[in-house]
Design a protein around this nucleic acid. Structure first.
Lengths: 225, 225
DNA sequence: GTCCAATAATAGACTGAGTACACATTATTG
DNA sequence: CAATAATGTGTACTCAGTCTATTATTGGAC
């Protein structure tokens, strides 16, 4: 449905904390998330109660809410990373590359580097199906998308030295996120029908490129294009 | 925040039904909706319980849910109209006008005809503030926007004789709704800062026109542009 | 080791939306 | 006026999410 928000492995990249207390806390958190994800995949998000998750993870109900304010957060625990990625994409662009083009190149780079954010495979299908099967999860995806659009709007305006409320930045960010959302859906749809990751990636990039043409035209005459 | 979904007057345009049973039903429905809207405006959506609404409208709690499956529906009871308007905009376009341009002209027509859908005034501010004050309502706005994007995608593909799953139609619809959403927000923001309906409308149309340029560029070479 | 302060886990009770079902009420139809 | 079908409503339930208080557990100081 949208970006890959789920943590696939246990703190793969972050340094292992020396603190025993912190280590335990992270382990508990990861355990709850893993157990919950498995149950959601098996029976659908809406047919798993928080009580069941708590029991299956062998913790108290309150502990679950202690780590994850919303039930949905147990599935989407990587949205902050997505935000940071998009901020970084702008900062690390080469000199002379306009922000909108930078995001297009970023999409191509993610695909080339086989980033889990644009993974169209059998593995991601379970994820997509789980989300599609729940109104609550789809609502959360929409909310995250909007939050990211805000972040991108601010990052865009910042990158060209305009006010964070710049209407052009808001329009650019909204069109960008709309494009990416359609592109991701198209990628997953293509994989589902053709069972071919290569084709799915091509479909994803085709939509991104098409949307980018539109973005550049809409923002022509501004520093964003 | 987004389109005007609230019914301002009691069934202003539809024929008064002869049936007493039907008349009563509609009156009850409208009464609940009015009472609820007043309470939401006064105290904020999240600080009004369904029980309070039922009591204030002098009906049972179950009656409320009988008419409005969701609490939010008491505020947004015109979204079906919005869908139909957007379908009609395509059907009634003049010969030779491409779908994307038709939607741009439609926006201008709505403004010229002072449609409540693009009302930027003191009256609409209460609405916008109520929505902004509640995560639940914002989530519902996003959901309706997505539903409308689906409707528009189907209407678009239909209007040019393509499959309803046409990726170009989906991209066009998503970019269109993103543009309109930003345009509406910009219109309301402008009114809030300048207290000038004329300026707000100009701001709204400026964003629509800018977005349309992008849409045409993105969909160039397809029958939609 | 022992004690203390901070942190984590949990129990229990509560709120409020939304659902299922049964029952009462009321308008319409013949 | 009786049969019928739509409508209104009470009761009881599920479940997410919150609040408060209490009970471990751990890291550090001595």
């Amino acid at each position: 449905m949208c970006t890959q928000y789920k943590n696939p492995a246990i703190n793969s990249d972050m340094a292992i904390p020396t603190d025993l207390r912190t280590r335990k806390r992270l382990a508990t958190r990861q355990n709850i998330s893993n157990v919950a994800t498995r149950l959601f995949f098996e029976r659908g998000f809406d047919h798993v109660t928080v009580d069941e998750i708590a029991a299956a993870a062998d913790v108290g109900r309150m502990t679950v809410f202690n780590y994850f304010p919303r039930k949905e957060d147990m599935l989407f625990d990587r949205d902050e990373e997505a935000r940071e990625m998009l901020r970084e994409a702008l900062r690390q662009r080469e000199a002379g590359v306009a922000p909108i083009e930078a995001y297009r190149l970023f999409a191509h780079r993610l695909v080339a580097e086989e980033s889990p954010a644009v993974d169209f495979s059998a593995r991601s299908q379970g994820f997509v199906k789980t989300i599609e099967g729940s109104e609550t999860l789809k609502a959360r995806v929409r909310a995250i998308r909007d939050e990211i659009a805000q972040v991108v709007a601010v990052a865009l305006s910042e990158s060209v030295g305009r006010e964070p409320t710049d209407p052009d930045a808001k329009l650019a960010a909204s069109l960008l996120l709309a494009t990416w959302a359609v592109a991701l859906i198209q990628g997953h749809m293509t994989f589902r029908h053709r069972q071919d990751t290569k084709e799915a990636k091509a479909a994803f990039l085709a939509v991104v490129d098409k949307g980018t043409i539109g973005l550049k035209a809409a923002l022509a005459g501004t520093p964003y294009a």
